[in-house]
Design a protein around this nucleic acid. Structure first.
Length: 875
RNA sequence: GGGCUCUUAGCUCAGUUGGUUCAGAGCACCUGCCUUACAAGCAGGGGGUCACUGGUUCGAGUCCAGUAGGGCCCACCA
């Protein structure tokens, strides 16, 4: 047989993925088996695969493949999110490049462009996931703007409105002046920025030459000031009570008010109040009935209504007004200052607080069961530390701004009557008309009297239904699929969207199914580079996942990602990890070459072959339960590492070496067959991690029936093992290692045969494993002895001694070694004796602990005796 | 500012209820080997005051308090 000495993944991966698709092995339909369902967090429809997706989807694929091989009906539902603001921003940019501005288009024209874009680029990411080996049921691919999905989103909006949870209100919102839309609190990212604290003096009306000085980071909003606020108990300003001040530049007279919101020891203790442009100022304004002057347009430029700076950008105005006020003598000081400034998550532009009319969901009304579910473990967060964060957020949850001033998304199903502020909410225009007639008592109303709300819903107001709507659980309640697949098993996602998405899915789950949407939530870490920087396009520190797969193979990349990513911990990506994965793949590949390359002969099995097979089978039992345990706790890195060591160390380094015939010799048919069975079992255990390589080898081992794939083969449930052979072989391995170390130390070539004498109370045991010792140690003779033979060096393993003849022994060096060991053992014994001499220890510690200490004492004393005897023999 | 969390080998991390020689793993490193499965490999080896200080206990990497330094979340300071 001719097999290349290096594993080359590319063709093999394409071949098997195509075969799996052809055979529809990932397809799931409800049946009598227990379901294991995962809904894939839908990436943005126009997104491209990045390292975060790789980690996320690798984890999901490992879990789903394992479930599939353990008797579950595994169903992994893929799909994409319409991602309203992100996608709309992309489409706007694309149109601008074509010389088209959004403002010139009608809503319908814009949507036409958007859908064309979506059809062209949408879903690329899902195709990329196949390269990774993702075993999703692609026939189930969903999109949050599919017609039935959209129906469910509208249905839910109407229902929540009917229940009184949704309201429309004029409130301060986070405004994105580039996307020209409101954002939810969660979409605002605060960043530390170096700026200035401007100290500005306002003249007191009727007291020429008297000033009050305020401090602000946003001088451009001065033109919209409608008051100065001071603390009622601030003695510095008592003389200003009841006075008015003149706003610089615009010369407006505004009241000086007292409010205990003001912090006396910040800045100057006097605060300018701009109710239209700051949340806190707005609240002060409400308390004092202040005028609200909105000085800005929706794009962050100064409104034409204002007397100055019309049409100028807010940041230009900041510089200009500072200059102007310096010229007019109002600017007292410009102090460097660091503060945190809100930025739009999507466009990264500085957020403007702005008063506007939006749709809100009362979160307190609906979030109760979702908080409780996580508190009582009905929904389990992994790692558990996120429970605290979750509890804190849910306990202080604020109302959710649902509306976005965009076109790409689900249009809010509210209909205004005759252009007034009076409206009805309904799932269809027909239903809306009926409601409108009812509400107004006017039977003559027609569609022409109704105009639908222009705003669309926040993306998360559709994706929060994902686990339900991918099974049409809202539009067709009680259908077979939703009843079978829901609730799902586990959600794998990033902690950064715990509130955006996870919490809201739990809320929706209880509101609409009265059930959790998933049992477990596995929160992955963030993929960072070696310097712990987050991987990002702008830093250019993120490798292209597809290039990685092309260079190393998907299996290697999967292993690389999983090797260092315990749940909740960041993954510090390094090519070295993927190289380790590749090396592992190659190791397995070569083990396969070895086993398949032997010449076969029909002879009796040799003793060492029998031992090897028996031992390896027990090892698999033992390691299998360890792997199961890791999986139960979602410790995927540990599970993989257990497999890595089982294959590399136990299977390759010990098992294969034990059965390997001497060069040129054939192997017994039975041994080869049994080795292949063991190999196959290992490949099944490994398959969820390395699907392609294991599939290839599964078919390389023997002819398989059509439709027989390892990915749908069933793993044997391991039961653990405490067979004596495990401990016995451990002892033999220890002895072999000790002798090898001795040879290495003495510079003895492995080619040079040695004689070996064993002095042990367990002669029978060593006799039984003699063939193994011979195989590993290249011995010309093995005999038993009762005491050290002249002219030999001795090696101790536990209570057993091995003597190896040497031409010339360095007596002094041997003595030195013995001294050191005696010294160490004496020290050890001293500590043990001290413990045992302590009455309180003997009286208080559990018997078992005391017993082990006594055993330690006995062992150490026995060992010392042997060591001293050896020393004496050396003279 | 409030809450949570972390600090163990050069790096990334395990270490379950305090108790076996408990101080571990993988990688990296060092030494020797191109031994016909694999140099993407084999064999062997070195390496840690468990952040610091104190306490509880017969016994602390593990429990408690404080200190120092990271990280995360929330609120947000004009």
């Amino acid at each position: 047989m001719d097999i290349a000495s290096k594993y080359s993944p590319t063709e093999i991966e394409d071949k098997w993925y195509a075969a799996w698709m052809e055979a529809k092995v990932f397809k799931s339909t409800p049946d009598e088996r227990e379901p294991y369902t995962i809904v894939m967090p839908p990436p943005n429809v126009t997104g491209v695969l990045h390292m975060g997706h790789m980690l996320n989807n690798t984890i999901q694929d490992v879990l789903i493949r394992r479930a599939r091989m353990r008797g579950y009906n595994a169903c992994w539902v893929p799909g994409t999110d319409h991602a309203s603001i992100a996608t709309e921003a992309k489409v706007v940019r694309m149109l601008r490049e074509q010389g088209i501005t959004k403002a010139d288009l009608t809503r319908d024209e814009f949507l036409k462009h958007a859908f064309e874009w979506k059809d062209k680029y949408g879903g690329i990411i899902l195709k990329q996931l196949r390269k990774l080996g993702a075993s999703a049921d692609w026939d189930r691919t969903s999109f949050t703007m599919d017609s039935e999905y959209s129906e469910s989103v509208i249905q839910v909006f109407c229902d929540l409105y009917e229940k009184g949870h949704i309201y429309r209100a004029n409130r301060m919102v986070n405004w994105d002046p580039v996307a020209k839309t409101a954002l939810s609190d969660e979409e605002v990212i605060y960043k530390e920025k170096n700026s200035f604290l401007y100290h500005v003096r306002y003249e007191i009306e009727g007291m020429p030459g008297e000033y009050v000085t305020i401090a602000t980071t946003r001088p451009e909003t001065i033109i919209a000031d409608t008051a100065i606020a001071i603390h009622p108990e601030d003695e510095r300003y008592t003389h200003l009570h009841g006075r008015r001040a003149i706003v610089p530049i615009v010369n407006r007279s505004v009241p000086i008010i007292q409010d205990d919101y003001v912090t006396m020891d910040f800045g100057t203790g006097a605060l300018k109040v701009t109710p239209a442009h700051d949340v806190n100022d707005y609240e002060i304004g409400q308390r004092h009935g202040l005028e609200i002057i909105d000085s800005m347009n929706d794009d962050g430029t100064i409104s034409d209504e204002m007397a100055v700076y019309q049409g100028m950008d807010r940041f230009k105005v900041r510089k200009q007004i500072a200059k102007d006020m310096e010229a007019s003598g109002h600017l007292v000081e410009k102090e460097p200052y660091t503060n945190s400034v809100g930025h739009s998550e999507r466009t990264d532009v500085v957020i403007e607080s702005r008063l506007s009319l939006q749709w809100w969901l009362n979160m307190k009304n609906v979030s109760g069961p979702a908080l409780e579910a996580v508190e009582n473990g009905d929904v389990e967060l992994i790692p558990g530390k996120f429970i605290n964060t979750y509890r804190h957020w849910m306990g202080n949850v604020r109302d959710w701004c649902l509306s976005r001033q965009l076109w790409w998304g689900h249009r809010i199903p509210a209909y205004f009557i005759d252009g007034s502020e009076e409206y009805v909410v309904a799932t269809s225009t027909e239903a809306a008309l009926e409601k409108a007639k009812e509400k107004t008592g006017r039977t003559d109303l027609t569609m022409a009297n109704l105009s639908q709300e222009e705003d669309v819903l926040d993306t998360w107001a559709s994706s929060w239904l994902w686990p339900i709507s991918v099974f049409n659980g809202l539009t067709q309640p009680g259908n077979a699929e939703i009843e079978y697949y829901y609730p799902t098993q586990v959600l794998v996602t990033a902690p950064e969207i715990l509130f955006f998405w996870v919490a809201r899915m739990i809320i929706a789950g209880f509101e609409y199914r009265d059930q959790r949407p998933f049992k477990d939530v596995y929160l992955t870490g963030i993929v960072r580079d070696k310097q712990r920087r987050k991987m990002s396009k702008s830093l250019g520190n993120s490798p292209d996942p597809l290039d990685l797969i092309a260079d190393y193979g998907a299996d290697s990349v999967r292993v690389g990602m999983l090797l260092s990513s315990p749940a909740g911990n960041d993954l510090l990506y390094d090519d070295a990890l993927v190289e380790q994965g590749r090396n592992f793949a190659n190791k397995i590949w070569n083990a396969f070459r070895l086993v398949k390359g032997w010449e076969i002969v029909d002879t009796e099995q040799q003793e060492r072959e029998k031992i090897a097979i028996k031992w390896m089978k027990e090892r698999i039992q033992e390691a299998g339960v360890e792997v199961d345990d890791h999986f139960d706790k979602y410790r995927l890195s540990d599970a993989l590492m257990s497999m890595y060591k089982l294959i590399w160390d136990d299977f390759c380094s010990w098992f294969l070496e034990m059965i390997k015939p001497n060069y040129g010799d054939p192997i017994s048919r039975q041994t080869q067959e049994e080795s292949l069975e063991i190999f196959e079992e290992l490949m099944k255990m490994l398959h969820p991690f390395m699907p392609f390589l294991t599939e290839e080898l599964y078919h390389g081992m023997k002819e398989r029936a059509e439709g027989d794939f390892i990915c749908i083969a069933q793993q044997v449930q391991t039961k653990g093992s405490e067979a004596p052979i495990l401990q016995e072989v451990e002892l033999i391995k220890e002895a072999i290692t000790a002798v090898r170390a001795f040879r290495a130390e003495k510079g003895l070539s492995p080619k040079e045969a040695i004689e070996l004498y064993i002095n042990s109370e367990k002669e029978a045991l060593f006799q039984h494993y003699e063939s193994v010792l011979v195989k590993f140690l290249n011995t010309s003779k093995i005999e038993f002895a009762k005491e050290q033979i002249d002219g030999t060096a001795s090696i101790r393993v536990q209570s057993h001694e091995f003597y190896i003849p040497l031409g010339a022994i360095d007596v002094e060096a041997e003595k030195e070694k013995l001294y050191k060991e005696i010294e160490y053992t004496e020290g050890f014994l001293k500590i043990v004796l001290k413990k045992l001499g302590n009455e309180r220890f003997v009286n208080n510690a559990p018997e078992a602990v005391v017993a082990t200490e006594r055993k330690k004492q006995a062992d150490a004393e026995a060992k010392l005796e042997v060591l001293r005897k050896s020393l004496a023999e050396l003279g």
